[in-house]
Design a protein around this nucleic acid. Structure first.
Lengths: 193, 193
DNA sequence: CGCCGAGTTGAACTGAATCAAGAAACGTGG
DNA sequence: CCACGTTTCTTGATTCAGTTCAACTCGGCG
């Protein structure tokens, strides 16, 4: 059981490819370690990597008028990148911060694109990644448009209870689009023992 | 100048492909006509097409608790589909309604996927489409999180003035995440002659 | 110990929703 | 082309969810 097993499983779940294809891909990966508080990506830099989290958790956020807004939390077993910047090659509007010590496998932009070119299966995986990211974003947009803060909290608690308990009020609230005080009040309504 | 010229131009702007590839692709297209008020897609049906609008405009919206929420407006020269459903093969949460009489070129899901398989360039185009859709959604999500209703209106007016003038208050407001009365008031602030 | 950031609670405030009513624009059929 | 009914837009008054500012509690850790 080495550090490639997890990513291989995640990769094949998207789309199984030939052993040759996998060998090409896995040969491009680099293992990296991070400490809590480190950044995978800072605002303004062009994202050059997609990471797969073997261990750890990240918060992806941007800053507007000095205030932080969280767009995502990602955990062990997730692919992580400042995707907007990775795609457009523009400076990233988002920071990616490690919430705990982490170990991740990274692939460089150019290396991934070389892989895309080498295998039509590669392109397919790229498409599937992009599609799954789209689905996630649309869901969240729909929630932001149609739900109240309290409904968003309830929905999140239902779908992702470990997130609700594991993340600070400050960060969670900025993900839900409200202020910490408001989340604190909403939470009180849901306390039951 | 036939009905394929526009889509060819749009397609090649994403990614130029070989003449063979284009012939394969264009042979799969169907020309369709719609009347104002028709639906390309209704909630609950699985989306089987991607359309390219030669003429016309659409509003993509979903309904929650009887209220309509608009996620997108699309116009002449745009690709249109209930992408969420097209990807997941689940029933679409969104309706796509024609805002005016329209002419569109359509490709069927299975036909597109056959094209993906035939050409690695095909997969690449699929990836590029998905990526561009992602970018659009993230931008909107960031706006919804970090801007007030008035700021969202101002931003939209700056980036897309023809949209602001051409779309009804009712529809525009549901896109901005506010109620028609609120948009009406915001608008008053921006009137100048 | 004592500090310090995170979380909670309270009170006043505000942006947007809601409810209601009237004015304008639209389309459909005579 | 007008008359009618229907929908859309605007304006006003009120309410409400969520913000803001401020004070207090708690738990960690230096």
């Amino acid at each position: 059981m080495n550090y490639l097993d997890n990513i291989k499983r995640a990769f094949f779940q998207l789309h199984p490819i030939s052993e040759d294809g996998w060998n090409d891909f896995s040969g491009r990966l680099m293992l990296k370690s991070f400490r809590k508080g480190d950044f995978l990506t800072r605002e303004g830099q062009v994202e050059n990597y997609i990471y797969f989290l073997n261990k750890g958790a990240t918060r992806n956020y941007f800053i507007k008028d000095g205030k932080e807004f969280t767009v995502d939390f990602l955990f062990e077993g997730d692919f992580v990148t400042a995707y907007y910047s990775f795609i457009t090659r523009e400076p990233s509007p988002v920071f990616i911060e490690l919430l705990e010590d982490a170990e991740a496998v990274a692939i460089h932009y150019q290396s991934l694109h070389a892989f895309y070119s080498n295998h039509s299966d590669g392109e397919k995986v790229g498409r599937l990644i992009a599609e799954s990211q789209y689905v996630k974003r649309l869901r969240k947009e729909m929630d932001l448009l149609s739900l109240t803060a309290e409904e968003r909290y309830a929905a999140l608690m239902k779908k992702n209870p470990e997130l609700v308990s594991g993340i600070s009020v400050k960060h969670l609230s900025s993900y839900l689009g409200i202020h910490p005080e408001s989340l604190s009040r909403i939470r009180k309504l849901y306390v039951r023992n």
